[in-house]
């Protein structure tokens, strides 16, 4: 299953975000095709997480447009071209089609693993309990955690919790999955099991936007790597070209620091 080029699932046009006086994203445009895996790299504070969070409107953007699966995110355009914030209901509905996995897992600690995964389908999709239950068990099998169905998150390792978080996002049958540094909080020996699940998703043809510090993983999984620095996309391209032959000074410096073993 190859990339469906020319059929963008996610499109950012001229997106800008300001936090007070600081401009975190500056006129960023990016288009992600169906079944494409785009990996975003950059230093911490470069704006890559903000970009990701704008896609499902967890972060509000000040300018530009974001379209996911044909639908404008967060705002509509008024008759005079002005931006009108969409209703909470519309924003929530759009989010339900966009899966997101967080650095700190963010599982619901008061629910069992199974309930965590069923929460979205039942309360947002209005699915029946039996159906949600069956779906959740299937997803847990896919991430290799069938034996943890009735455990509470606190009993799980970080890697296991993150796999549950992925299953929870997948339970909504999202059009696109967003991964926000999902291995950064993990002990090194637990990183592999989470990356394996994400790789499998890529093979299954899921459209994904991945923010990560794992360069080897980026090289393995990405159809395209986007390098962001100080709120602008500096360079993008196929991982092979980008990593072995960076054209910008900033990316060269970034990769050099990475190779010298600095934490990014």
């Amino acid at each position: 299953m190859g990339v469906d080029s020319g059929h963008p699932t996610v499109q950012l046009r001229n997106v800008s975000v300001r936090f007070g006086r600081m401009q975190v994203l500056k006129h960023v445009s990016l288009s992600i095709d169906r079944r494409e895996v785009v990996v975003i790299i950059g230093r911490s504070g470069s704006g890559k997480t903000t970009l990701l969070r704008c896609i499902n409107f967890l972060e509000e953007y000040d300018e530009g447009e974001i379209v996911v699966d044909g639908e404008l995110i967060g705002y509509r355009t008024g008759p005079d071209g002005q931006r009108i914030r969409k209703s909470e209901r519309e924003i929530a509905a759009a989010r339900s089609n966009i899966g997101m996995v967080f650095q700190s897992y963010n599982l619901f600690p008061h629910m069992t693993v199974l309930r965590n995964i069923m929460a979205g389908p039942i309360h947002v999709r209005r699915m029946s309990r039996q159906e949600a239950d069956a779906g959740a068990r299937e997803l847990l099998a896919r991430v290799g955690l069938s034996d943890k169905v009735d455990e509470y998150p606190i009993k799980l390792s970080g890697g296991q919790q993150q796999r549950v978080a992925i299953a929870r996002a997948l339970a909504m049958q999202p059009k696109v999955m967003l991964f926000d540094e999902v291995t950064s909080a993990l002990d090194p020996e637990l990183v592999g099991e989470v990356l394996a699940v994400i790789k499998q998703l890529a093979r299954d043809g899921m459209t994904m936007v991945v923010v990560t510090h794992e360069m080897q993983f980026a090289r393995d999984i990405a159809n395209r790597v986007v390098f962001i620095d100080e709120g602008v996309i500096v360079e993008q391209g196929q991982p092979r070209d980008l990593f072995s032959n960076p054209s910008s000074e900033r990316l060269r410096a970034f990769l050099k620091r990475y190779r010298e073993g600095y934490l990014l």
């Binding site: 209901r89 929530a92 989010r95 899966g99 967080f102 700190s104 897992y105 619901f108 600690p109 996002a169």
Partner: peptide, 27 residues
Amino acid sequence: LPRGQWDAARSLGMRRARTLGIVIFPQ
């Protein structure tokens, strides 16, 4: 409660009242 709990609930498409009822209040 950590902000991440809100983030997670919202990313699933839950609205505020639902997030409060399902995620925030029980904790």
